[in-house]
Design a protein around this nucleic acid. Sequence first.
DNA 1: ATGCACATGCGAATGATTCTCAGTTAATAT
DNA 2: ATATTAACTGAGAATCATTCGCATGTGCAT
Lengths: 152, 152
Amino acid sequence: MTTDTDVLIAHCRESGQRITGPRRIIADVVAHAHDHPDISELHRRVAAIDPRISLSTVYRTLKVFAATGLIERHSFAGGRVRIEPAAERHHDHLINVDTGEVVEFRSDAIELLQAEVAKQLGFELTGYKLVLFGRRTAKSDEQGAPLRPNCE
Amino acid sequence: MTTDTDVLIAHCRESGQRITGPRRIIADVVAHAHDHPDISELHRRVAAIDPRISLSTVYRTLKVFAATGLIERHSFAGGRVRIEPAAERHHDHLINVDTGEVVEFRSDAIELLQAEVAKQLGFELTGYKLVLFGRRTAKSDEQGAPLRPNCE
DNA sequence: ATGCACATGCGAATGATTCTCAGTTAATAT
DNA sequence: ATATTAACTGAGAATCATTCGCATGTGCAT
C-alpha cells in the first residue's frame, strides 16, 4: 500500500467511485504491476492477498480504472488484454518476438510524423496504436514475461 | 473469377494446397474485398454464392491464405479480425473514429524511424503494427464500413 | 445507527475462433 | 476411366477471454 496506490485510490474516489476492499487491493496490485500482466495474472496476484476476490470483480474494476484513465489496456498479441498503470509520460512498446519481453520506448519524432500523416489525409489524429516487433541484435538474450510470440 | 482470383489460386497451388470448390469461391470473394471485412461478413458473401460453405471452412481457408501471405489479418478494434487481400505495396491504416471508415496510407518516413528506434533499443525490427485513429477535419463526413469506433 | 445505491461473487451466457470426426473429394498413379 | 489416399469439408462440440444476471453484501451520506 504505497503512494502509487493512494494516487489510484484518490483518483477513483474523485471520479465518484466507491472505495471498497477489493478495489483497494486491486489498485495496490495494479500500481505495482510494471510487467504488463494479463488479467488472469492480476487476478492471481490479487487472490494471493484475498482469495475471496473474484475474477469478475477484477474485470469490472479494471474497466472502471481504465474509464478513469488510471490504467491502460493493451492487446499486444491479439489474444488476451494486458494491463499497465497509466504512465505520466506516454510511451509505446516493442515486443521481443523470441521471448515476449516488453520494452517501453517513446519517440516524439514518430508521433509528430503520425499527426502529420493524419493531417495530410484530412484527419485530426485522436489516437494511435503502435507496437514494434523485434529480435535482439547479437547480444545476450535476456529474460522476458511469457507471452505468445508473434502477433496474428 | 478475375485475374486477382487466379493469382490467389495459383499461389495457393504452388504452396502445395489443393484447389477445391470452396477455396475457389473464397479466393474470389477475398480478392474483391477491398473494404476490410470481418470473417462473418466474408462468410456471408461466400454463402451468397454457395450456401453449403461453412464458417469453419472460411476460417480454415483464410488461415491457409494468411500462412501463404495471400491475405492480411488485422485486429483494428480489438474484437473481430478483419481481412484484406495482400497488397503489392505495404501500407498502414487510419480509422475514422466517428464512422469506422478505414483509410489506407503509407509513410516511408515513419517506417524508417521505427527501424531506427528499434536499433537504438538493441533490436532488429521484424515487424510492427500501426493504426492511427482520427476524425475528419471540418469536411463532409463520408461513408464508412460499420466498425466499433475506438479501440480498447 | 440506517438505508439504499452501488459493488461483489457465483455461475451462466456470449462471441469469436478452433477442434473433432465422419464423410467428401482433388490430385496422382494405375 | 478407376482406384487410392491424403487433404478438405460440414456440423456441431469445445475452448477461451470476457461479460451478464441476480441475489447478497457493504460503503457512505444522512
